[in-house]
């Protein structure tokens, strides 16, 4: 719990006091896993990733929750983590990932934010993780009275590695909206199609 408070720092929500804590420790070896997240809870995942492994997490229909993932990518492994969905309530997402020698990690986030979200995605490449490669790709759109606080963090202590991240928050601009409307889409229709991009894998 202290680890969580330290990780989220000034963003740690006091309103989560007393919420049930769900802890899951996983070792994923050459496998694909769909994470099950509980609403109105604090979800803590400690995941070791080896071989070629993929983790998927959906935020669709999730009610107020805090999710913390500690991802460790084992030497020589290739891992990916995809989180996607529509955020309609208060969601706090913290990802702390670390790589090792010759390991690869790709984190993809596709988020449609209508509620409030704090997203801290940290990638750490410790010294000695020679030949490692990390990518973080975020695509975000927000609607209405939303609040989105995003901290995509890269900490690189090993020069012989490669790391990049791309974070995009978009909106449809006038030209794009005019195009879609001229093809017959209504405002609602446009919102629906946009939503579909973010709420499906």
């Amino acid at each position: 719990m202290d680890q969580l408070v330290e990780f989220f720092r000034n963003y740690f929500p006091k309103s989560f006091d007393g919420y049930p804590i769900k802890r899951i420790d996983l070792s994923v070896v050459d496998n694909k896993v769909n994470l099950d997240v509980s609403s109105n809870s604090i979800n803590i995942f400690n995941i070791k990733l080896s071989g070629r492994s993929n983790i998927i997490m959906s935020l669709n229909d999730l009610k107020k929750s805090l999710i913390y993932l500690d991802l460790e990518v084992i030497e020589g492994s290739e891992a990916s983590f995809i989180v996607y969905g529509k955020v309609s309530s208060d969601i706090y997402l913290g990802i702390s990932s670390s790589l090792s020698k010759e390991s690869k990690l790709s984190i993809e986030e596709k988020l449609y934010i209508e509620g409030k979200m704090v997203n801290i995605a940290k990638i750490i490449i410790p010294k000695g993780s020679v030949g490692s490669y990390a990518v973080l790709d975020q695509k975000i759109v927000s609607y209405g009275e939303s609040l989105f606080i995003n901290l995509p963090i890269l900490i690189i202590k090993e020069p012989k590695c490669k790391a990049e991240h791309l974070s995009k928050k978009i909106r449809l601009d006038e030209d794009q909206l005019f195009y879609l409307k001229s093809k017959g889409m209504s405002d609602d229709g446009i919102k629906k199609v946009l939503e579909r991009y973010f709420t499906t894998l």
Binding site: S146, I149, L151, L154, A163, E164, S167, K169, I170, R171
Partner: peptide, 17 residues
């Protein structure tokens, strides 16, 4: 760190080594 309260906004951040 991006703190976004306005839906009609756009940002693009790239970090690379």
């Amino acid at each position: 760190r991006f703190h976004v309260e306005e839906e009609d906004s756009y940002y693009n951040n790239e970090s690379k080594t």
